[in-house]
Design a protein around this nucleic acid. Sequence first.
DNA 1: CTGAAAGCGCTTACAG
DNA 2: CTGAAAGCGCTTACAG
Lengths: 335, 335
Amino acid sequence: MTTTIFDVARRAGVSIGTVSRVLNNRDRVHPDTRERVLQVVAELGYQRNALARGLALQETRILGLLIPMVNDPFFFEIVRGVEDATTSRGYSLLIASQPRASADRAYLDVFQRGYIDGLVLVAANVQAAEIHELNDRGMAMVLVEQDAHVDIPSFVSDNYGGARLMAAHLIGLGHRRIGYIAGTDTTADNAERLRGLRDVLAEHGLILPHDHIAHGNYLRGSGHAAMQQLLDLPERPQAVFAANDQMALDAIQAARDRGLRVPEDIAVVGFDDISLANYVSPPLTTVAQPAYDMGYHAAAFALDIISAAREGRTLKPQHMKLSTRLVVRRSCGAP
Amino acid sequence: MTTTIFDVARRAGVSIGTVSRVLNNRDRVHPDTRERVLQVVAELGYQRNALARGLALQETRILGLLIPMVNDPFFFEIVRGVEDATTSRGYSLLIASQPRASADRAYLDVFQRGYIDGLVLVAANVQAAEIHELNDRGMAMVLVEQDAHVDIPSFVSDNYGGARLMAAHLIGLGHRRIGYIAGTDTTADNAERLRGLRDVLAEHGLILPHDHIAHGNYLRGSGHAAMQQLLDLPERPQAVFAANDQMALDAIQAARDRGLRVPEDIAVVGFDDISLANYVSPPLTTVAQPAYDMGYHAAAFALDIISAAREGRTLKPQHMKLSTRLVVRRSCGAP
DNA sequence: CTGAAAGCGCTTACAG
DNA sequence: CTGAAAGCGCTTACAG
């Protein structure tokens, strides 16, 4: 049916070993023989079967990437970084998106033993036990924006540092009463952002009262009610720091619904620097994360692990925290 | 090293054939035997090698998706549709993003013979010859938002119809002098949108002068200069129809840079209905495409082709044009 | 109900 | 320089 290496060999009058050698540029092959084989390959439009090849070679040169396929430019940038690192080293990239019904484990089937040489997990909703299982099985894996396990390499952005930058900026603008809209409290990044804010406040002799923390869940919409809660405080905050941009946008809307102007009456800032941030009015002051770099470094390290394993070496798990950057626009009230 | 079916068989005191039967729920296997095998599988944490399995079965139950990984929510929706159709039929999805350096053919390597059972190509920058080569090779393939080849199934949105809706809407609002910001002129969708606009204008006895068409390339930023060109016309257009939302946003910015108000001084509308469209100010009037549905139907048909082929049947290539929808917001000047 | 064996399509020592 | 053969890890008629 489909043409195999046997067809090529027969037509070229050589053994399949020779065809294989020509295709892999291995060993010496007589120029005439090579010529003839290549000729037949072209005639037949022969292509090696990747499955058989992978089985024999015990490698596929494919890196797997599991990423939540939510509509978030932040993840796009990570993918771009992973892609660049991967292709520049002669590997291919296979992206699987995490299903929304996470009870389903189908997404892991794609990454069954044998299919990919390594795996980059991005903010995946995967049980720690599963991650360790894969890791123990010998899968070269790397975590991005995901709770770190000391024995598994991880690449995260400096959420704490970013929140510190933002807090210092707000205080520098003269804001003293600051409210915080928290994201999902099960994730490390939310805790880190809150800690950064708190520490800087403390360093300026300020505190973050309990009732100045409202709770959202990172998703669009969840910042609205949270903001209302903060606006209901006896003394309204001068500035509100939302744990991400989506909620910050909700907060701005909530403020407007009360007839308040942003930033004149109340400053609102976010975290992430989603592309929308620059388009809304007023443009949102936020913290940019090194998404591309995280993806790039994570993938590069996964490939390093694979190379090392091939030589029988094993790499010490790298843990990298990439620095974030304050992006000052207008919603903070800066001149 | 890694545990294989032989390890399981040995430990369970059966042949590999029996292990395979248990794992595949094939034939009758004595309950006790089954029990023992399953027990060992669990103990050893055995997982079948997907490569070997695929080679023996001559199928992987994986559908490939090639899509430009640009930061565009439109493509996200397509992915979601493909994903739903795929997983609901027990298939896995493998996404490869087209590299920006399209001279590189690496992305096709991932889809080498054997790896995937079928392929969905979305707005791919792939030579027609290559597409036909893959198709001739027997790859079950389907095209989305891509120039149609009569012998290859295609799923596109009704760009012409959408543009007609928009043109009629603008004329209904009283606009007579309409400018157009074109996208890449190598793609069919751009031509279709322009044709839709032109036809409706003609039906109203209006024409679209050559200098009322400015050229962008669909990417963010490219709409700015194009808009300036239109604003420099002796008589300014009353409305500008951009071939996509990204460029429409640029156009709004360009108008503002000249001190013009949108829509009071000039109306600006787009195409695509990206999520940003509803957030910008003024909210953008645009044409929504059935991205999710296109993805869903395309993937479903690809899987149908695969099933048919397995039964020795071959399907007549389906060509589907999905209708678009006018989304009226404020940038067009509608009340 | 179960085992032995062929087959899926490659790669790569091992001889010669 | 090249062929014959073993091996990669599965599945599935074919016997029994």
